[in-house]
């Protein structure tokens, strides 16, 4: 049953970027035993002030309840701090297909629209705390890039 809880929580879509799941983003950290013998799902926030944190908790709660896992609790873990390295390979592919350049160490991002690497950062801060605003010089389209964090 507890393995189910991990799968149920991990399958919840991210409220800001519904193309990826919480498991893809590495937000679901695992199952933790409680002192009373029960189990908690451990979640970690991406950015400290991410307004989606509460929405994510509510969505996981509802998903667990709908799966008949009312006894499973939810806890927030800050440490170790979330990093974009925890986004899975599948998550990277889904982000790209959705039109968001996945995080990478490269100086330039690959344009999710035309695939060119002739791109430049427009603004370090974008539409959500986790994304920067970029533009492609080849097709001139603006796009979001997940910030390395």
């Amino acid at each position: 049953m507890t393995a189910d809880a991990l799968a149920v929580a991990g399958a919840v879509p991210d409220p800001e970027i519904p193309a990826v799941t919480l498991a893809d983003l590495g937000i679901v950290r695992g199952l933790r035993p409680r002192a009373d013998g029960g189990t908690d799902v451990a979640l970690t926030p991406t950015y400290t002030g991410c307004p989606a944190t509460l929405a994510i908790e509510l969505m996981v709660r509802r998903a667990l309840d709908d799966a008949g896992l009312r006894a499973v609790g939810i806890r927030t873990e800050l440490s170790p701090p979330w990093t974009t390295d925890w986004i899975t390979a599948e998550g990277h592919a889904k982000l790209h297909a959705y039109g968001i350049a996945p995080p990478g160490k490269a100086e330039t991002a690959t344009c999710p629209h035309c695939g060119s690497t002739d791109t430049a950062e427009v603004s370090r801060f974008g539409s959500t705390p986790c994304k920067a605003l970029w533009q492609c010089r080849a097709c001139a389209e603006p796009f979001d890039r997940f910030k390395c964090h």
Binding site: T48, G49, C50, L78, V122, F125, P129
Partner: peptide
């Protein structure tokens, strides 16, 4: 617009710190 987004994002980070 870019500065507007930046300042709002920084504000959000700071309020997040304050909450913790």
């Amino acid at each position: 617009l870019e500065i507007d987004l930046a300042l709002a994002n920084i504000a959000l980070d700071l309020v997040g710190q304050a909450t913790l």
